[in-house]
Design a protein around this nucleic acid. Sequence first.
DNA 1: TATTGTTATACTCTATAACTATA
DNA 2: TATAGTTATAGAGTATAACAATA
Lengths: 155, 155
Amino acid sequence: MPRPDASLRSFVGYDMKRAFSVIQYDVNAVLMAFGLRMVTFSALVVIRDNPGLRQTRLAQILMIERPNLVLILDDLERADLVLRERCAEDRRAYELSVTEQGAQVCERAVRAVARHDARMTEGLSEAQCQALHRALQLIERKGRTGDDTGSVSRA
Amino acid sequence: MPRPDASLRSFVGYDMKRAFSVIQYDVNAVLMAFGLRMVTFSALVVIRDNPGLRQTRLAQILMIERPNLVLILDDLERADLVLRERCAEDRRAYELSVTEQGAQVCERAVRAVARHDARMTEGLSEAQCQALHRALQLIERKGRTGDDTGSVSRA
DNA sequence: TATTGTTATACTCTATAACTATA
DNA sequence: TATAGTTATAGAGTATAACAATA
């Protein structure tokens, strides 16, 4: 047997866990320069693209629990990247938006992560890279119970 | 924008995190029937394939820290699936091996995970599935500092 | 009564320092 | 002194129950 873990290499879950742990480590290193982690980065990008978003909906989109999102937003608000504003129609809710600084940091962080992504997939053709994305999204759909079909209000 | 997280979908890390969380949840559900988790399953398979393995080497293979492996092996030993036997040449070390029961559980768990794997990649051709494995392993190698070249003693 | 955001909490995973026993 | 396995511990990440304010 060439590798001591050869048996496990036939399972996508094993290869994916290893590949992901490598990516996670690297991306977090890239994002640290912006004071961000993977989750706070993801939240920042989605809020920028969907201004007026409410927390419950954002939690659905990112597939995280509402209580966990609170700390993520506290983090982003403390760094002056995101605003929570009381919703006029429903005063229980907040409307989320990025600040001017948040938009700038988001833009630069996206570019940095894109550069890192390019380095990680270096050696794959454009077609192979697209095939990878499609395969991952197909696998994600297999496990979905999910109602991620709803549209999001845009300002 | 079709999806609220469309910007993030261009990053392999994002697609991979979501696909992996789906797989992890599912595979853990499959393994629960055998009293195993993903890590204990991985350890069991590698020990079966590399009898006489020492803990430090197993930790390297699975890319986990030695202290964390201890609890994993405690778990496997308590379930009578794995044996720790004092090494004759070096009495600090243990030689790891699977019990008769461990071999049987391993065999059946491998088959169950393989069936689940087939379901997850259903819709991908054989070639596409191989391409997925190759892409994931390529990404893993990008982040390696690593010395995973050493061979493992086989009984 | 139900929902939004929140608090408190617990459980897993992961990472590091320091210990013991052997070498 | 260095190494193998271990202990203790701390930090993330993640999950659930229950609360206050509002609907």
